[in-house]
Design a protein around this nucleic acid. Structure first.
Lengths: 204, 204, 204, 204
DNA sequence: AATGAATGAGCGTTCATTCAT
DNA sequence: CATGAATGAACGCTCATTCAT
């Protein structure tokens, strides 16, 4: 699977991803990333050209990996009814965003991202919206659904809801069994909530 | 309602809010804020103790003002049917978040906020969730609704969806008439979408 | 005497001048200058904006001080014969360049100076060339001289010769009494040599 | 004449010379030189030990090549009258310095050269001064000249004047026909001026 | 109460050099 | 013999903050 990143670059990006997800782009220093990655402070400039360019690489890195998973996910949809497909789609997106949430919250805020980076993310959203359209249309044809809400609205609601739950853990965890692992429990809850939400919009 | 902020402090916070909403906490320097506010660079440390503490004050400042609006908003609900109340609530939250979205996306990301700040924001969410509960219960009693979805889930979906649309303007604006003002057009669209979404969850 | 530099700025420039005269612009670090000046490392950026801009200030600083001396020097020429005036001029330029030689060797080499800086130095040269023209013309009118060599050539020879002697001390000091102070002895020698040279060009 | 430089070393030195002449020692990076020379960045350390030592080699390299030209030049003097010899000498030195001026301006400035490097350059000056002495003595014996100015002073004036004109092109080019090639026009002018200057010092 | 000059720490980056291959 | 990946040190600069006034 060709990505254009060497092992060392991938290693640095993985470490950087975790830190930046936690503390943001400006809140994470090059020294911090390199120290955590066990490499010399000069390596980020050496490998990526600059911290900014490393960030652009990080986006590309993540999108590439996400789109790889997409194939597996879309294969899974084959032969299922639109209702089942929608359930699978919600489960996939909840699982994915919980893993890489930070990734969907940067653009336009905190990070004056370049056009290239914004495009990288849009690529993902458009790809995803296209799948939603396909399922919605199939469901309306088969009679599973009787409404055609806009794909971009469904997408906004799904991703937005998940990110809110992640970012406002402090608030949301009060409604979750405190003995349970937050992310595992939250994943299940959001999946169910969003599934219900989607069907509420598709069948009226 | 006692706020504890002098006029000068309020002025600085207002200026800071706008800049930070645009460029993030780390992306906005103390010099920049003070320069834009027309005050001495030492004033932030002087008035608030530090940039971090100013940020905490900013949260408190915003929550206080929001809660002030709440009274007007809750007054508006009086004597309406639960269905109408829910419509008003959606309209209020969409309008509010569009104005102060930055404010709901910081916590846990980009900013290692203190417990105090997190509490400040939770105060708002809890207050809001309480209103949702009240409307949902009233609607179930009156027969307007026949379901009792969790208030925190409805909240997450409402706020999350709005923030997504704001942060991913690049993506979402493709689905909006390009001649229209983005925020005005988006506000209307999201309001309708979320209203439909809420009713889809309350009546099944 | 208004120069536009505060005492602190003047202090830093004086220290910087000495170090840069010795080791060049790129060879002298900001830390080194600040350390020698007993000020914080941030002061150069703080006072001048950047190291580059400090260098531009240094040129201006030196030219201003040189042009101040000029008035005193030109006053001294009044009422003298052209022959005496030429002797005074040589003595002045030798003395001045020996003090600030570094200053005349930077432009176009080692430092990609801005147009502004180059202009600063040219200002000095042009001012000086004008005086030479005046003396040469007066001398030809009075009969002291019988030739009109180009002022820019006389200037080039005077300044060039002096700088050579400074820069190639290693070579030149072999011809100077080793018990004497190099600069004092060199000053006298060059003054005599250049005086002879000038008269050799003015009377043939 | 044994130089001790391999072809690769000579190639690197030639490239380095051009760059350093333009931007100075500190202003030219090892990467830049190696990149321009089409060799690996490690080669300068590998071949010369360090950047500093490469610089010492560069001086030696240039002096060796200059001294090689000297034989041809001194041969040319044979059988000429001292007056003609002096003209040839001025023409040679002007031409040479215009080509390798940078080379004569480094020592003691911008570069803390080692004793070895300084010696390398002195070797050249002493050799040159010896020739001047010979011509001056011959001219005084033949009656071409009637003065014996110090060779080191003549040398300082010649080299200094030329370097000034090169370094202060900005100033000097105003006095040169702007349609002409600067270096070609300057060479002719300086040659004539220095020839006149030398004869002015040798015949009084 | 408020200033603005000044600070030390840390920033992202580039440097000449080293070393395993 | 030659490479190029990798390094530690130092670079110029900006940061939030302090302190004498």
């Amino acid at each position: 699977m060709k990505t254009g990143f060497t092992d060392k670059q991938a290693h640095i990006l993985t470490v950087a991803e975790e830190l930046i997800a936690d503390k943001g782009f400006h809140g994470t220093s090059v020294r911090e990333i390199c120290s955590a990655a066990g490499v010399n402070v000069a390596m980020i400039s050496y490998y990526f050209g600059s911290k900014e360019k490393m960030m652009a690489s990080l986006y590309r890195f993540r999108v590439e990996r996400t789109l790889e998973n997409f194939s597996a996910f879309t294969d899974e949809l084959d032969g299922k009814t639109p209702t089942e497909q929608m359930k699978i789609l919600v489960a996939f997106i909840v699982n994915h965003i919980l893993k890489f949430s930070y990734f969907h919250g940067f653009v336009t805020q905190e990070w004056q991202s370049t056009a290239e980076v914004k495009d990288t993310l849009q690529e993902f959203y458009k790809e995803f919206a296209a799948i939603i359209v396909r399922i919605v249309d199939a469901g309306n044809a088969s009679g599973d659904f009787n409404c055609k809400p806009a794909a971009e609205d469904l997408l906004a609601t799904m991703i937005g809801t998940i990110i809110f739950v992640i970012r406002n853990r402090n608030f949301y965890e009060k409604y979750i069994d405190e003995d349970a692992d937050y992310f595992a429990a939250a994943e299940e809850r959001i999946r169910e909530h969003l599934t219900t939400t989607m069907f509420g919009l598709l069948r009226r």
